[in-house]
């Protein structure tokens, strides 16, 4: 309290309580300031709890906002349709392979592998989906996250609530990550069920030729889901960053997809082999490391590090842009 008095007495021309411009944007984030010297917080207003109660309240409020966000995401028909489409793809692949494999004219590796074991369909499905269709779904949700609110005008009301810029961005990103894992899990589950119905269950033969028991196979599928989900979370960070630059969500979504496709094209050019390892989609397919014996943890760790770097980089870009942006929509 004494510091407050000395501050106001030294700054003579200053009206008490005025917030310096440089402070205003950032102080919005400081929701947990112990507010013991704010008698203005009367019984009608939000009380000014201090210390741990304030921190607990902030934590609950964060989960509440995330819950609201997840509720919106998972009730929105568009997002559910994308999940349904992605769930249908492994079924289509499974049925096709079953029909082709049934003709038994000595087809190549993939079909034999799948026809030989139900669990293999999961890996085949991921290698089909991970480079295009799954990124589309993740881009739509993450690219829409900030831009969609800005375009609809709801962003100004969320921030005036006040949601807090960093807090809102964190909630939006976590929401996109949950959706990314939901997409990944749905694909894996659909592929697993389809595989069990259409193909014989039993020990899995890996790429390296060794055979592992079913339980071990399931563990490897779980690892794949974890890895692919992390890759999609990295992609979500890019889409989120783009989303903070526009009020048109389709722009952020298309921008992310263009990036993904450009990366695929670059990977296809042999002369550019030196940059390929740094492109995000290159690491998406690293999940086949779980099909080695033993699991190629080096390749997985390499991919996860890349994902982490992308999340850090684009998360920072998103934060830097969003925390200082004038909201004029």
């Amino acid at each position: 309290m004494s510091t407050a008095e000395s501050a106001t007495s030294t700054a003579t021309r200053r009206t008490p309580g005025l917030v310096p411009v440089t402070e205003t944007m950032r102080t919005t984030e400081r929701t947990e300031e112990p507010a013991t010297d704010h008698p203005a917080a009367g019984p009608s207003g939000p009380s000014a709890p201090s210390g741990r109660r304030s921190a607990a309240r902030a934590t609950w409020a964060f989960w509440r906002l995330l819950g609201s966000e997840l509720g919106l995401t998972f009730r929105r028909p568009r997002n559910l349709v994308m999940l349904a489409v992605l769930a249908a793809v492994p079924v289509v692949i499974g049925v096709t392979l079953r029909l082709v494999g049934g003709s038994d004219d000595g087809m190549g590796g993939i079909i034999q592998a799948v026809a030989g074991n139900s669990l293999m369909l999961t890996f085949v499905s991921f290698s089909f989906l991970v480079l295009l269709l799954m990124p589309v779904a993740i881009s739509v949700v993450a690219g829409d996250s900030i831009a969609g609110e800005a375009g609809g005008g709801t962003l100004r009301y969320l921030l005036a609530a006040p949601a807090g810029r960093t807090r809102l961005l964190a909630v939006k990103y976590l929401n996109a990550v949950v959706y990314a894992y939901a997409v990944t899990a749905v694909v894996a589950l659909s592929a697993l069920l389809t595989g069990l119905v259409l193909f014989p269950a039993g020990p899995v033969t890996l790429l390296s030729g060794t055979t592992i028991p079913v339980l071990d196979g399931l563990v490897r599928i779980a690892i794949t889901v974890g890895y692919v989900g992390a890759g999609m979370a990295a992609l979500a960070a890019i889409a989120l960053a783009l989303s903070t630059f526009t009020e048109v969500s389709i722009g952020a979504i298309a921008g992310t997809m263009v990036l993904v496709i450009v990366c695929q094209v670059l990977r296809a050019i042999p002369e550019l082999g030196s940059i390929t390892p740094y492109l995000l989609p290159t690491k998406f397919t690293n999940f086949d490391a779980v099909l080695r014996s033993p699991i190629d943890t080096g390749a997985l760790a390499d991919g996860l590090l890349t994902f982490g770097a992308y999340i850090l980089l684009f998360g920072t870009i998103a934060w830097a842009r969003f925390s200082g942006k004038d909201i004029t929509s």
Partner: peptide, 16 residues
């Protein structure tokens, strides 16, 4: 320039 709403830091003023 400067401004103050309810004489509080923004994060505490806006909920009111």
């Amino acid at each position: 320039g400067e401004y103050a709403v309810l004489g509080l830091p923004q994060a505490e003023a806006l909920p009111k």
